[in-house]
Amino acid sequence: MVKVLSELVNSDRTAKIPGFYDCIRPLTPHEDALYNPIVEDMFNNPSGQRHWDPLATGVTKEELKRKLMARWRNPSLTIHQVDVSGPKNRTVIPRSAKASVSMRIVPDQEVADITKSFEEYVRKIFGELDTENEIEINIKVVADWWLGDTEDKFFKAAESAIEQEWGQKPLFIREGGSVPAIRWLEKRLKAAAVHIPMGQSSDQAHLNNERIRLQNLHSGKRVIKTFLRELRSLEVPYNQNQQ
């Protein structure tokens, strides 16, 4: 298992899966420009970065932008857990081992193509080990990628609502995934989705003592109300002849 896992990622942290980076949507000038105010904010307000200070690390603005792109817009492969059978005694040789691996896909990757390439690659690596052991691959959860359009009327309405509440325009980031239903709902309902976060980076999301500040909660409720009012002003007049 260790040998197989060691062949999944290069030393530069890129995935070795064949074709893994073939279908990534090119970076547009509009998207590239969205990173600039984020980078400026991180450099101008280093005290607001709870886990990382770019000034203390000596990272340049361009390097920081590339790091953010690696985190937000590029696909990734992560080995989460390795476990073995038996009593977990150090001197007992386990009968079997298993590992949990996830892959984040981005526009315009296809889930079926990535999972197929992953399975074929793992079996190839395992076959080269010339071992009497067996390997089993189970794809437990799949979800399509989702990306909002910051230029459509719904995002513009959300931007206006947030600015009215907080007194400044929001920063658009490509984070907040792991919501498999979003893409499906967009296709099913033929309606655009918008993510409006309410918390802070210090909210311990999914960790012990997860929380949300009351100010953010109440402001978030007002943002939603304003957002819905903004949408109402954009509605097409109702026509009784329409179905």
Rank of each mutant, 00 (worst) to 15 (best):
V2M: 12
T14F: 08
T14D: 03
A15H: 04
G19E: 09
R25F: 10
R25I: 00
P26R: 00
H30T: 07
H30S: 07
E31G: 05
A33D: 14
Y35F: 15
N36K: 14
I38D: 03
V39C: 02
M42D: 09
F43W: 07
N44P: 07
N44K: 13
P46R: 00
G48P: 04
Q49D: 12
W52G: 08
P54S: 11
T57M: 10
V59R: 08
K61P: 04
K65D: 05
R66K: 13
R66L: 14
P75N: 08
H80F: 15
Q81R: 07
V82K: 03
D83L: 10
S85D: 15
N89A: 13
R90T: 12
A97I: 01
K98R: 14
P107R: 03
Q109K: 05
A112V: 10
A112D: 15
F118T: 00
E119S: 13
Y121R: 00
R123H: 15
G127L: 05
E128R: 02
N133L: 11
E134R: 11
E136P: 01
W145K: 00
W146H: 11
L147T: 03
D149N: 15
K153L: 14
A158L: 12
A158Y: 10
A161M: 08
I162P: 06
E163T: 08
E163Q: 11
Q164T: 09
Q164C: 01
G167V: 08
Q168P: 00
P170M: 06
G177L: 10
S178M: 10
I182S: 10
W184E: 15
R188M: 09
A191I: 06
A193W: 00
V194P: 09
H195R: 02
P197L: 01
S201V: 12
A205T: 02
N208R: 09
E210V: 02
E210N: 03
I212H: 04
R213M: 06
N216W: 03
L217F: 15
K221G: 06
T226Q: 14
L228K: 07
E230W: 05
L234K: 12
E235V: 00
E235T: 02
N239V: 06
N241C: 03
Q243H: 11
Q243S: 09
